[in-house]
Design a protein around this nucleic acid. Structure first.
Lengths: 203, 203
DNA sequence: CGCTGAATGTAAACAGTGATTACAAATGAG
DNA sequence: CTCATTTGTAATCACTGTTTACATTCAGCG
């Protein structure tokens, strides 16, 4: 399901991309734990050393996958909250913010291993080398829309960090055995309301 | 810098505890990444197989360390916000809540690797097998105190989850390259104020 | 066409890993 | 003291990340 630019078959082709694809799929299937460079190479019908022509070490491969993860997250955002459109009215602004949060939580829930990779020791600055808007940009835009409709006050770095922390924390803690809040999806709306309440005009 | 409680020399002693201690120290020094059972055994003057008399596998060892991590976190909490005391007045309640959040953030900041272990795939239900109050209990108590002083409304599961998510998210995101908020310690107070504002009576 | 040099692959090896096994020594209860 | 249980050892297995020396393919150019 690939073949972005390979001219012919396996023996020669675009390894590198194939390696990233394989690893990404492994992450999506929760098989990142026991992924090895050798296994990936074996599965792609290639010798172990070949991978090291394209990545200095395993970490570099994982870093590439993490970057793709941020692209996928951005794609989810784009589907949930198209970046170039904007909120028409106040209700719209609320809906867009909730949709953004929901997309974030869902991503973490359905692609947990990739998610943890993205924010783990191999994490990359989100959108660092990309021209797509970053996670932070998206959140900032939604908050700006909310402020424009006077649902919240204009936000600075602290408020933005606050909002992101809450959403990120929810995503990270969901499924934790210490929680009784099982169906997190349904509680996201209430959590969003709490965030807005914190940032609302009139303390 | 070892030898926590061994009665005599190397050949016999309380391995298991020594292994946990060694691994815990490694985590505190940020050396968990390249910890191996063999290395730990070697460092303790013992054969590699010996470790497997006490732990079925490496994961079990790490899980034990994670449990100790929760104990250490509880100890930090206890120092910051003694569990059996309580807030005298409203200002006290605020201070205690802020101190709790600060302890959480500081722990994550200074013992990052242990922290990630605790909430990673080897994570344990915090306080599961312990008689100490759990992270969640502590937060619940502080929130109850705040409610008692009418700083916030009485909290249910959702509000508690909200507060924890925010604090946890802050802890997890601090140091992220995407953030401009560098001195997070100083911003914790403001973040706490935002949490309280979200939960305050009268929206 | 044939030469050449860079990409890209292979095969073999090194050191180190998690884990299991058969065996030996210390320990403590009877 | 005896003897089973506990706790360690030594050797081994399959596997890992990574490097090396060597082979192959390919593009550009005379």
């Amino acid at each position: 399901m690939v073949q972005t630019t390979p001219r012919d078959a396996h023996h020669h082709g675009n390894l590198k991309e194939a390696l990233v694809d394989y690893t990404l799929n492994a992450a999506n299937d929760g098989l990142l734990v026991d992924l090895s460079v050798r296994k990936a190479a074996r599965e792609l019908g290639v010798s172990p050393g070949a991978a090291y022509r394209h990545f200095p070490d395993k970490g570099a491969l994982l870093r590439s996958v993490a970057e793709r993860g941020f692209d996928a997250l951005a794609a989810d955002f784009e589907r949930a909250v198209p970046f170039d459109s904007c909120a028409i009215d106040a209700a719209d602004a609320r809906k867009r913010f909730a949709a953004l949060a929901m997309a974030y939580v869902s991503f973490a829930n359905s692609r947990t291993e990739l998610w943890r990779l993205m924010f783990g020791p191999f994490g990359v600055a989100p959108g660092a080398a990309s021209d797509r808007p970053s996670t932070y940009d998206w959140l900032g835009k939604c908050l700006a829309e909310l402020a424009q409709h006077h649902i919240i006050e204009p936000t600075g770095a602290d408020e933005q960090f606050f909002a992101w922390s809450t959403i990120h924390g929810m995503s990270d803690l969901q499924g934790s055995p210490a929680l009784r809040v099982q169906p997190i999806a349904e509680s996201v709306d209430r959590q969003c309301a709490l965030i807005l309440s914190a940032l609302a005009p009139r303390g």
